[in-house]
Design a protein around this nucleic acid. Structure first.
Length: 815
RNA sequence: GCCGAAGUGGCGGAACUGGUAGACGCACCGGACUCAAAAUCCGGCGCCUGAAAGGGCGUGGGGGUUCGAUUCCCCCCUUCGGCACCA
């Protein structure tokens, strides 16, 4: 051993290499020349969800970007051109709230945080192309967010309407449906309120079918994300059936998934928000009571509406059932929602639990019309099955038909009479994206008293967010106070006009950033189509599960629209998605209040980035939740020290032919396993275990002719995980730059062991174990097994009924 | 209720197409080195039984297919995640 072998001191090594990488711009990947954009060069686009610059890098970032780094390094060393950029999701509430608290402006805070997080990322040694950095709060970026908005607006995909919305009283802004979890604000946890307001929406519902049907183009998205999106979109097949008001004949359309139960409808219910309600009771004796009910309902919170007993009020009017002309009473009840279907239902208490509960409370008739074939169903139960074994009764000409058949026949019958049609219902609502906050992308619209809503012309973009002193929300957008900015002229008629003062939700900013990376400096367009088409769809997208129905759904929607606008050729942004799990501490989610927050940078100071990076991925499968243990980190630290020591010891050994012995073979098997696990299985912890196993083996056989080859291989394979120490040891072992060297390739001839143990079983019981050459053929193995004295004793002259030989594994004999 | 994922030692987990279950790490136990400690190195480590060799049991539970099942099939239980007054 070299007497002067230095101790492993990660700090100096890491800073040294980070400087080299920065000076040489090692990870900058320029776009190909225009003529080469259509070539079939081996390329890969790796994107991690961009960070919100809140100050410090946390465990979630460490895990996210280390996964991306491993993939990036390995692909690059396999000769693939890998684009791996980084940006900042810089607009949004946390920065704005922090600024209000400090009495400062969000911009300096945000930009300070960006500078800090960039330094921290560089300290982690991630192989990022810093030449493509973007931030969503810069006019150079949001100019194009506004430009895209205008294209959506022109196609009618962005529009303003008055509607009941979810209002967060704490954040003083409206929320998208996707941002409300269990009736609470997804961000701050405050219970949301209902308000009627005019807000901006994207017509994502027009894309409900495309978002569902084009999931087939997603190569390998986790099932749970696809399931969440499917649930969220909530497509269900049914029928639109037109009831009418008795007396006036006014149409009352309903959506139902059970047209087979039409003959069981014994009452009709309108949602309290349904505009027909006021009209129906106007001037009647029921008017006061009904309007009072509507008022009380609107004061109820969502949660209260969902949990209380069903109640309602009778309107005094009746609806005509189109299948039998029967007049049924019209009620108003808040268990019917205005936002789904038509805000009105036919109530079938015999076959719907909710209608059943309501009917019981108010003594309304319960009339079963679909029953299991050949069985009686007891009076008054809510029997809801509707398969081929259920048949119709009490249903006029449809009696005896099976439920599925009746659905079709009844809808056809209604269709012939213009009283109904087959239709599809969705749970998905349009995406409400306007926010009454300051720190966001301004909506490029001007309100003119003469021309109405006018789009800001492209050549006047960006509409720059003005600097204002008072950014605190007061229930309306703080921008409204920036009078000089608000006052403008109408682009159409030139008269005095007012700017739109709402800003866009940050999810709009992040719905297209992954394309901007490909052409970040473009001043003519958001991105060049040929360049975008060259890199996208993203080959590997990496991020947390929390965006399953937020960002991941919005980005898919945006991409489809951009495709239809002719801006790009692809319709799905992310071909492949990896969702990392959450890192917990002591089995609990990290939180300041629990005081269990693990700050990765503290550990970097102590053990170096390489140890932290390795441990982060060694904790467990990266797509599941993992619990942080300091002892586990220590184990990785010991491992790196062992690699360090062995590499130095072997550096003095003259590199010779590793031969084909057990250690050489194990080394080749390790290469194959590490490569396959990362590349094909997206398993990041098992390769580390395999490398540890190999290091243990080298340690046991330091004089093996393959020892030097083995440790060189470990250093090479560990580089994507621990690039600094690997680079340093590569220098110790030889010459050249490791991150530029080719990824090791296993020799197929050396992938099997020289010698293996065969297990000889008789009737499933192990009777002997024999070591044999791995190359031995089946016949020889069988002969050897039968020749064993211990096996013979068990067979004892009996005839063998069957023999199974698994080469290299076992010989099984059945008497 | 509907949809999805998952149940393996004291713990995190491995076993990829059915082939020695428990790799690797942590924790623990024993030993070497040391005045001692740390660090490092060597060995042990599923449960029961046995001095040992060995034997029995064992991947949430119960069945099935198979020479052989953590792996495939059926039923059930539990946990986690999503959706849910969605008609």
């Amino acid at each position: 051993m070299t007497e002067t072998m230095e101790r492993y001191e990660p700090q100096s090594i890491e800073l040294k290499w980070q400087k080299v990488w920065a000076d040489e711009q090692s990870f900058h990947v320029p776009n190909p020349a225009p003529a080469e954009l259509t070539g079939d060069r081996a390329k890969s686009y790796v994107v991690e969800m961009l960070p919100y610059p809140s100050g410090d890098l946390h465990m979630g970032h460490t895990l996210n970007y280390t996964i991306g780094d491993v993939i990036t390094h390995m692909r690059r060393r396999k000769g693939i051109q890998v684009l791996r950029p980084m940006g900042y999701d810089a607009f949004g509430l946390p920065a704005e709230n922090a600024a209000i608290k400090e009495g400062a402006h969000p911009r300096p805070t945000t930009e300070r945080n960006i500078a800090a997080i960039r330094t921290q990322m560089q300290r982690m040694g991630w192989a990022i192309d810093w030449g493509r950095e973007i931030s969503t709060h810069e006019p150079a970026y949001y100019r194009w967010t506004q430009w895209l908005f205008l294209r959506f607006y022109e196609k009618g995909l962005a529009y303003r309407k008055e509607a009941p919305v979810k209002w967060c009283p704490n954040d003083q802004t409206v929320l998208a449906n996707e941002q409300v979890v269990d009736g609470r604000c997804e961000r701050c946890g405050a219970e949301v309120e209902a308000k009627i307001l005019t807000q901006w929406y994207f017509r994502i519902t027009d894309y409900a079918d495309a978002l569902l049907d084009e999931m087939g183009d997603l190569e390998d998205w986790p099932d749970r994300v696809l399931t969440m999106q499917r649930n969220w979109i909530g497509r269900s097949r049914g029928a639109r059936v037109i009831f009418s008001v008795e007396g006036s004949g006014e149409e009352l359309p309903v959506f139902t998934t059970r047209p087979d139960t039409l003959f069981g409808a014994t009452f009709f219910v309108l949602a309290p928000e349904n505009p027909l309600v006021t009209q129906l009771v106007a001037g009647s004796e029921h008017e006061a009571e009904v309007l009072d009910y509507v008022r009380r309902t609107s004061a109820r919170s969502e949660v209260e509406r969902e949990t209380k007993e069903k109640d309602g009020v009778f309107t005094g009017r009746s609806a005509i059932n189109p299948v039998n002309g029967e007049a049924i009473p019209i009620w108003v009840a808040d268990y019917v929602l205005m936002g789904y279907g038509t805000g009105a239902i036919m109530a079938v208490p015999a076959h719907d639990e909710r209608d059943h509960a309501f009917a019981e409370s108010y003594g309304i008739e319960i009339r079963p019309v679909v029953v299991p074939e050949g069985e009686e169903i007891p009076e008054g139960t809510a029997y809801s099955a509707h398969g081929a074994n259920e048949v119709l009764v009490n249903s006029g000409g449809f009696d005896g038909l099976s439920s599925p058949e009746a659905k079709e026949r009844i809808v056809a019958w209604l269709g012939e009479r213009d009283l109904g049609e087959e239709t599809i219902g969705y749970r998905l609502r349009d995406w409400l994206f306007s926010r009454q906050r300051y720190w966001g992308c301004p909506i490029p619209i001007v309100h003119c008293s003469a021309c109405g809503e006018v789009a800001v012309p492209d050549d006047q973009l960006p509409v720059v967010l003005p600097d204002i002193t008072e950014v605190a929300p007061k229930g309306r957008s703080p921008l409204a106070a920036a009078e000089e900015w608000v006052s403008t002229t109408c682009p159409t008629c030139g008269q005095a006009a007012l700017r739109e003062t709402d800003t866009m939700d940050t999810f709009v900013d992040s719905s297209w950033y992954f394309i901007r990376y490909t052409d970040p400096a473009n001043t003519e367009l958001p991105f060049d189509r040929a360049i975008a088409d060259y890199w996208l769809p993203v080959n590997q997208y990496i991020g947390g599960i929390e965006h399953a129905v937020l960002h991941l759904l919005y980005a898919r929607f945006f991409t489809k629209v951009m495709n239809e606008l002719g801006l790009c050729s692809f319709r799905e942004p992310f071909a492949r998605l990896f969702n990392q799990g959450m890192v917990t501490a002591g089995g609990a989610k990290m939180s300041k209040s629990k005081g269990n927050v693990i700050n990765p940078l503290e550990y970097v100071e102590h053990y170096g980035a390489d140890t932290v990076r390795l441990y982060t991925l060694f904790m467990g499968p990266a797509d599941e939740d993992m619990d942080w243990h300091d002892n586990g980190l220590e184990g990785i630290w010991r491992f790196l020290n062992r690699v360090w020591r062995i590499a130095h010891e072997q550096a003095d050994v003259v590199a010779g032919d590793p031969g084909g012995g057990p250690l050489a073979r194990k080394t080749h098997r390790t290469i194959a396993k590490v490569t396959d696990d990362i590349d094909r299985r997206f398993s990041f912890h098992t390769p580390i275990a395999a490398m540890m196993e190999l290091v243990n083996e080298i340690q046991r056989h330091p004089d093996d002719p393959a020892a030097r080859f083995a440790i060189e291989t470990v250093v090479s394979l560990i580089q994507p995980y621990a690039p600094h120490v690997a680079e340093e040891l590569w220098g110790v072992l030889g010459e050249g730059r490791l991150w530029e060297s080719a990824w090791p390739v296993a020799d197929p001839a050396l992938l099997v062991e020289e010698e293996v143990e065969i297990v000889v079983q008789v009737n499933g019981k192990v009777r002997d174990r024999i070591r044999v050459a791995a190359s031995m053929g089946d016949d020889e193995l069988l002969a050897l097994a039968l020749a064993s004295e211990r096996v013979q004793a068990h067979i004892d002259g009996k005839e063998l009924r069957k023999t199974i030989v698994v080469p290299g594994k076992l010989v099984s004999l059945v008497i």
